[in-house]
Design a binder for these strands. Sequence first.
DNA 1: TCGTGATGATCAAGCGTTTTAGCAATGTTT
DNA 2: AAACATTGCTAAAACGCTTGATCATCACGA
Lengths: 359, 359
Amino acid sequence: MISQEKDSGNAATPDVPVSKSRAQPVTLREVAEAAGVSTATVSLVINKKKNARIAEQTRQRVKDAIRQLGYRPNAMAKTLVSGTSRFIGLVADGVATTPFAGQIIHGAQDEAWKHGYALLIANTEGNRDLETDAIAMMLEYKVRGILYSTWFHRPTAVPETLREADFVLVNCFSPEPGAARAVVPDEEQGGRSATEILLRGGHRRIAFINATTPAPARDGRLQGYKDALQAAGIPFDPELVLEAYPDQEGGYGATEELLKRNVAAVYCYNDRMAMGLYDGLRENGLSIPDDMAVVGFDNQEVIAAHLRPPLSTVSLPHYELGAAGVRMLLGLDEASTDAAVKIMCPAVERASVAVHSPA
Amino acid sequence: MISQEKDSGNAATPDVPVSKSRAQPVTLREVAEAAGVSTATVSLVINKKKNARIAEQTRQRVKDAIRQLGYRPNAMAKTLVSGTSRFIGLVADGVATTPFAGQIIHGAQDEAWKHGYALLIANTEGNRDLETDAIAMMLEYKVRGILYSTWFHRPTAVPETLREADFVLVNCFSPEPGAARAVVPDEEQGGRSATEILLRGGHRRIAFINATTPAPARDGRLQGYKDALQAAGIPFDPELVLEAYPDQEGGYGATEELLKRNVAAVYCYNDRMAMGLYDGLRENGLSIPDDMAVVGFDNQEVIAAHLRPPLSTVSLPHYELGAAGVRMLLGLDEASTDAAVKIMCPAVERASVAVHSPA
DNA sequence: TCGTGATGATCAAGCGTTTTAGCAATGTTT
DNA sequence: AAACATTGCTAAAACGCTTGATCATCACGA
C-alpha cells in the first residue's frame, strides 16, 4: 500500500528563499503543487507552447512558484522523453599537444551553443581504446552527433563505432572518398596566399622551405606555391624548394642552404621553421625584411605575432573548422557530396615582408 | 484503447547484423525479448550486480542478445533513476586566448575520465551572461559538480548560481577566504625555484624583471625571488628589480635598463618577456648563457623549448590544476579548509643558464 | 509430509519530464 | 434552448532504466 502523500496546498515551510544546495532538487511536481496546478500546466508554461491555452493569471502563478522554489528543469528527464539530447560530442586526439585543438574546441563550442547545444568533449591523446570508450560514452548520452577531430590535418581511419552516430571529421578526412563528411583547411589556397604575400612585396625569386614529413599540408602548400608562381608568370624552379624537419631546428638548419640559393624571399612551411630561420639569418648578420623577406604558415600567435619583426603568415582556421564542423553536423551548411569541404586560410600580413614600392 | 503490441518472439527480421545508424536505438526491452527474459534480468546482467543470482546460461544468452542487437544503454534513463549524472562541468573563461586553458581541460578530462566521469565544457570568454547560461545548463544536466576556471591566476567573484552545485575554483580564488574551495599554482615556490636555478648556476647578483600588471603572480613571484635570495644569504637589492609589461615588447624594452645594472643573471616574470629579452641581448652582441643567464616563467612550450638557446623556466602546472580540481571536487584530495590549495610549479632547466663549475 | 533455504528470475513502482486526448466550464450562434 | 466553439486545465501514458519485494522451484533435512 503506497500512500500518495497528497497534502495539497499549505506546505510546511513554503516561503524560505531557497538558494543553497538542497539535497533533493525541486521537481516539476513540487512547482505544480505550489502553484496549485497540474504538472502538465507547468510544463506548458515552461515551454511556452504556442497553442497551449493558459490563463495569464495561472501563467503568472506558475512563474512565481518557479522563481520561488528555484526550480531547475531536469534535462535528463527531458531528453528521455524526446529521445535525443542537446549534446554534441567532440573527440580530439590532442588537446594537450598544441594550442590548435583548443581553437577547434572553441569554435565548435561557440557554434554549438548558438544552436542550443552543449559540447561534450573527450581527449584521446591518440589512444584507440580511450577513443572507443569516449565514443561509446557519447552514444550512450545520445548525442546529436560527433565531431571527430585531429590536431593536425591528416587522413584518418574512421572508427567503426563512430558510424553509429551522425558524425563529421574535422581537420582530417577519410582516405576513401565519400566515406564521411569532413571539413579541412584549404592548404593549396593557403600556400598560394603565402606566396602572394611575397609576390606583392615585389619578389620574383622566392624560395620555399617545405617539410620533410609527408602530410596533406606538405603537398598542398607546395602546390599552392607553384600555382601562385604560375599565375604570376614565374617559372617554377625546383632548386628553390628546400626541405627540412618542420620545427625551429629545421628552420635554423636550413639557413645555410637557403643562402646559397641567393634569394631575398622565403616562404616557410610553418611558423616554427620561420622562427628558427630568424635565428639563422641573424647569425649571418642579415636583417628581416630588408635582406630577406620571410613568410610562415599556421599563424601560431605566440610565435608569429611576437617575433622581431612580427611574422607575416597564413592562418590555419581552427576556430572556423570547429564551427563549420558543427554547422555541417546540424545540416546548416551545404553538405559535402564526395570530397571534404575546404576552409580558407587567411593571410596575416605583418612586418617580415616589406611593402613594395614599385620602382 | 492502447494495444500493447506484444508479438513476443519471432520478430520480422531478427538476425540482420545491425550496425548502421538505426532510427530507433535498441532498448533494454528489446534485448530482454530477444533473450527471452525480463528487463530486470538484463539490467542485472549489464550492471554485474554482486548479489544478483543469475544462471550462467542465462547470463550468456543475455550477453549474446546484447552483442547481436548492438545494444547501447541509454545513459539519460540511467541518470534519471540514479538522480545524478556522471558529468563534471568545466567553465573556462578563455579557451581561445591561450594554450593554458587547453591544459586545464586536458588535466580535468583525464582525471574525470579516470573516475568514470565525462567533461561537459563551456567557454564563456569572460562573458557573464554566457557564464550564467552555461552554469544553468550544467545544473540542468545534474552534473556531479562544476570546475570554474580562469586562464590566468587571479581572484574572482563566485557567480551566485555556481553555489547551487558542488564546485571548485581552478586557477582562481575567492577574495573572501573560506568562501570556496580552490586550487591555484604556487607562485612563491615557483619564484623561489626560478631564482634557485640561477643560484645553482653560481650567480649571486640576480636581476628580476617583474610585471607591471597587478596579479597574484606578480606578488608571489617577487616574494619567491626574495625568499630564495635570503635563503642563500644574499641581501635583497631593490635596484635589481625592474618592471615591464609582461610580453615580448616589455622584455625587449627592458634590455637597456637591465644592462645598466651590471648583472650576468636575470629572472623574467614570464617566458614571453624572456623571448623579447633574447632579442635585446642579441642586438647588444651579448650571448646567452655566457654573458647573461636567463630564466623565464610559465614554460610555454612553443616558446621556451625552442628559443636559441632553449630557455630554463618554471612550469605553470595547468594540467595538474585541472586534475587536482577534479579530485578535490570528488573529495579524493584533502579538502582545503580556509585557503586555496597550492600546486607546485616545477623548474625546467634548459640551456639558458650555464652549469656552474665551482672554482 | 512439512518446513526451511537456496537459487533464479519476474513484478511493478518510480525517476522527472512531455504530450495527446479529453473534460468541464463558459460563450456564441442559431 | 439546443448545438457548437472556445477556453482553461488535467489525466495518464510514455520515455528507458533500476531495484526492492515477491514468487516459483527445487533440494534437503527432520
